[in-house]
Amino acid sequence: MKFYKVRDMDFLMDDNFPRPLVALAGNPNTGKSTIFNALTGLKQHTGNWPGKTVSLARGTFYHRNVKFCVVDLPGTYSLLANSLEEQVARNFILFNRPDVMLVITDATCLERNLNLALQIMEITDRIIVCVNLIDEAAKKGIYVDGDVLSKELGVPVVATAARRGIGLFELKEMIFKVYSGKVKPSPRKVNYGEELEKAIGELVPRLENTFSGRINPRWAALSIISGDYSIEDLEELVKIRDESREESAYGYSFFSQLPGNRGLK
């Protein structure tokens, strides 16, 4: 179990994350930490025994002579920012723009795990879906067809049984390929139905103008339509983000000032 505080989130503003940056997201209990540990080995700051300030676990690994920085985001069921963990995860993906976004899913209950994967696909394209615990699933008579899944999602899929070390090399290979552009994921986004898609379609060009690519316009449109943020909120968000980038100091103010931050109590 790992836990985060608002003021710990200043690490999010740390623009000095070494690149290429790989972020791990996933539901709780999907073996995300096992994957993280398997990737980074002992080269990590662990999210130590809580009790003092905890930061996101960070680590590195080398593959094909590239040093990848890996960040383990908190385990969440969703990215709709209903809780602090979800906000941390969402804001990290939104603002730090990982070079490769690794979504860890549990083969034994893929359906619910895809909820998160599909949400993340709204924010970033550079996604790899990792279907973990295939050994556990096989024991229960559940088999996931990676090719079909990959075709349906439009993003690369790697099957792993991280605890047994199965699929880890393939995972690193895929991370490298997505990073280097050899594989270009093109997520097949959720269709929200005629009415909503029309509204999104109208908003996107305007948002593209306003934010000139600093926020994913489709995600911004969705969050405006669903009432999470107003356009002013988002402008404020980007402004504070830009300012704190310039200051390159602590981002505390950024998070305490988050406008319209409705999920957070």
């Binding site: 069921y77 969703s78 709709l80 209903n82 359906e111 619910r112 909820n115």
Partner: peptide, 11 residues
């Protein structure tokens, strides 16, 4: 409210 969102998130 929030409870509703949580239930939805869980499917």
């Amino acid at each position: 409210g929030l409870s509703r969102r949580r239930f939805l998130d869980l499917g």
